[in-house]
Amino acid sequence: MSVNEMIKQFISSELIPEGSEVPLTDTDHLIDSGIIDSFGIMSLLGFLEEKFSVQISGDDLIPENFESIATISALILEKNGYQLEV
């Protein structure tokens, strides 16, 4: 499973209220659409740091890095060059 897919799976299962069917693409705006809010960002950061063994702090904690699955994935890859194939 790619980094993008793992992130998408987490967001779809944990941050999108049960029952709603939001077809997520890699470039959908997660913050503007309200999928990632002030609660969601904490949950997402916890997931990313644990799943990909990265520390996200300081200058990395900017909204631009969490705007879409693509930008989140880019941040993870930049942090540790992580790639997972399952």
């Binding site: 913050i31 503007d32 309200g34 990632i36 809010d37 002030s38 960002i41 909204p63 631009e64 969490f66 705007e67």
Partner: peptide, 8 residues
Amino acid sequence: NSEKKALG
């Protein structure tokens, strides 16, 4: 930026 959500 009032056009953006709280996070941005």
